[in-house]
């Protein structure tokens, strides 16, 4: 195959997408390397899905450059998509077909041979732990099973690059862990993954490198660890105060004494390398929280530091 294409799965420069006067994706640059798991972290509406759709060759870009496997999505859409596996945000399974037929019909869309599809189907059902449901209808499957089937379907053509848009949104915790486990194994096998998420734990677990998006722009990029080190202290103290407390005034007390503080609608966050020390300091200025929690900094805190908003609130 073309070496240039394989060496850079996706490269974007000045990539822009507008809908009318709304700039969904605004002049972003990024490169995805072979074999890495690359993430877009940001709240709903940050432009992640629009970017994914452009990479998936189903949304013409408004401006800028974009190559996938070194090819132009506008001109070579079919050729590119033949090498992609796409897990969309909504499962988009074919409810008129059963589990096995979903994989079969989808495989035919890639011009795969019937015998090849049958062989891959058994492997993929095994991999996604759906073998026992192979001949069942799709509709009654649980959310987690549907998502796993969507993942199996995306892998039917042995893609060089897998696009996952919010792979675990809407799943219960147990189902999420199962999906993460499968994706992690995929990653270990050397697959190149691009995923979008607004869950910081998902990004931390799966991504080697990620970009933080907000309002269509990339606000920073790096590995999860590097981003945390760059923007946050080691630990965070979360204080929940009584409903009658004036949070801004309490925060003012803490800030006056040189602490880095964020006020959220329901709590106060104190950033400190030593959480215990910060907590006893808060106690010293007379704060009496209903509950206090000391934890490690996460990507959620990175996002807050970069945009002044939480991932959930911003959506």
């Amino acid at each position: 195959m073309d070496d240039a294409g394989l060496s850079v799965p996706v490269a974007a420069r000045g990539l822009t997408k507008t809908f009318g006067s709304f700039r969904a994706v605004d002049d972003v640059d990024f490169q995805v390397q072979p074999g890495e798991a690359f993430g877009f972290l940001g709240p709903n509406g940050a432009g992640k899905s629009s970017t994914m759709r452009m990479i998936g060759c189903v949304s013409p870009r408004t401006a800028g450059d974009l190559t996938v496997f070194g090819l132009d999505p506008t001109r070579d859409g079919s050729t590119i998509r033949a090498r992609l596996g796409v897990v969309p945000q909504e499962d988009a399974l074919d409810v008129e077909l059963n589990v096995r037929e979903n994989l079969y019909v989808y495989g035919r869309f890639f011009d795969l041979k019937r015998s090849e599809i049958r062989r891959r189907t058994e492997e993929l059902l095994e991999f996604t732990q759906l073998t026992e449901r192979a001949d069942d209808r799709v509709e009654p499957l649980s959310g987690g099973m549907k998502r796993r089937l969507t993942i199996a379907r995306a892998l039917i053509n042995q893609p060089d690059l897998v696009l996952l848009d919010e792979p675990t949104t809407g799943l219960d915790p147990q189902a999420r862990h199962l999906v993460w486990d499968r994706l992690y194994r995929l990653k270990q096998q050397g697959a190149t993954l691009i995923l979008t998420t607004h869950y910081m734990d998902e990004a931390e677990q799966l991504c080697d490198r990620l970009v933080v998006m907000d309002n269509g722009r990339i606000v920073d990029d790096g590995s999860p660890r590097a981003l945390i080190d760059r923007h946050c202290t080691k630990e965070v103290v979360e204080l929940r105060l009584a409903a009658t407390t004036d949070l801004e005034r309490s925060a003012g007390h803490l800030r006056r004494d040189g602490l880095e503080v964020e006020v959220l609608p329901d709590r106060i966050l104190i950033y400190a390398d030593d959480g215990e020390a910060a907590l006893s300091f808060a106690d010293g200025v007379g704060l009496r929280p209903e509950s206090a929690l000391i934890r490690r900094s996460t990507l959620e805190d990175v996002f807050l530091a970069l945009t002044g908003r939480t991932l959930v609130e911003a959506g």
Partner: peptide
Amino acid sequence: WHRIYHSMTATPLT
């Protein structure tokens, strides 16, 4: 309603 076409467009189909 169904998203069948959206999953088709993720393949080489136009």
